[in-house]
């Protein structure tokens, strides 16, 4: 990843996973951000990449914040609303840190690849070594800095590891064009490392997919 183009200040003030996603988007493209939250990524994309962006967000507060920023965001749900979008409506459909909170991740991914020519998915890696050790030694569901809710409170109902996700991409017949794993500090894990290495040291992963 060409992170060098971003100044240190920018990196400090913006979530690295969002920047990583932004790096994957071609300037001037049409983008749908599924689960866009307060619109941080859409704003970043329209500033840096001049995209024509749209969003879907579950929470009313999130939608209001987005609308007040001048973003085009509809209140809705990845599980129920993607079905209404026509084929090839967007260049990219992005699912940022939301996959694990959907009811049907496989169906959502299939819709993303139908609606968009490319799909970008970022998710927390449940195979990260800290999570493994947490489960192995404490015998309890892991609660970490980034995944900080107890199992009975968390909206994250479908965790997966990087290897699980790679298997899912094969299942839905998607091609991985690019993949980045970020370590605890938000730095990319060595590019030439094998999947098993990423699966242990990547705290989160960002995948750029296209139909196979």
């Amino acid at each position: 990843m060409n992170m060098a183009v971003l100044s240190l200040n920018e990196v400090a003030s913006t979530r690295v996973d969002l920047l990583t996603v932004a790096e994957m988007v071609q300037p001037g493209s049409r983008v749908l951000d599924v689960g866009c939250g307060d619109g941080a990524l859409l704003e970043l994309l329209s500033e840096r990449r001049s995209v024509d962006g749209r969003g879907i967000e579950l929470s009313q507060a999130g939608v209001n914040e987005c609308v007040a920023k001048g973003l085009h965001v509809i209140q809705g749900d990845a599980d129920t609303d993607l079905v209404a979008y026509p084929d090839d409506a967007f260049d990219y459909v992005i699912l940022s840190q939301t996959l694990q909170a959907t009811f049907a991740p496989k169906t959502v991914l299939e819709h993303m690849l139908r609606i968009g020519r490319r799909a970008i998915v970022s998710f927390p890696n449940f195979g990260h070594w800290r999570i493994r050790t947490h489960l192995a030694f404490r015998g309890r569901m892991p609660v970490t800095e980034t995944l900080n809710q107890a199992w009975y409170d968390t909206p994250n109902i479908h965790f997966c590891t990087i290897r699980d996700f790679v298997a899912l991409t094969q299942l839905v017949n998607a091609r991985v064009e690019k993949a980045v794993a970020l370590d605890q500090a938000g730095h990319p894990v060595r590019v030439d490392a094998p999947w098993w290495f990423w699966n242990i040291f990547g705290q989160q992963a960002v995948f750029l997919l296209r139909r196979g």
């Binding site: 009313q60 987005c66 085009h72 209140q75």
Partner: peptide, 15 residues
């Protein structure tokens, strides 16, 4: 909203 999406329109929606 779905029709506007299908038409590629600029649409926000809140319930």
């Amino acid at each position: 909203v779905h029709a506007l999406n299908a038409a590629g329109g600029s649409v926000s929606f809140v319930e």
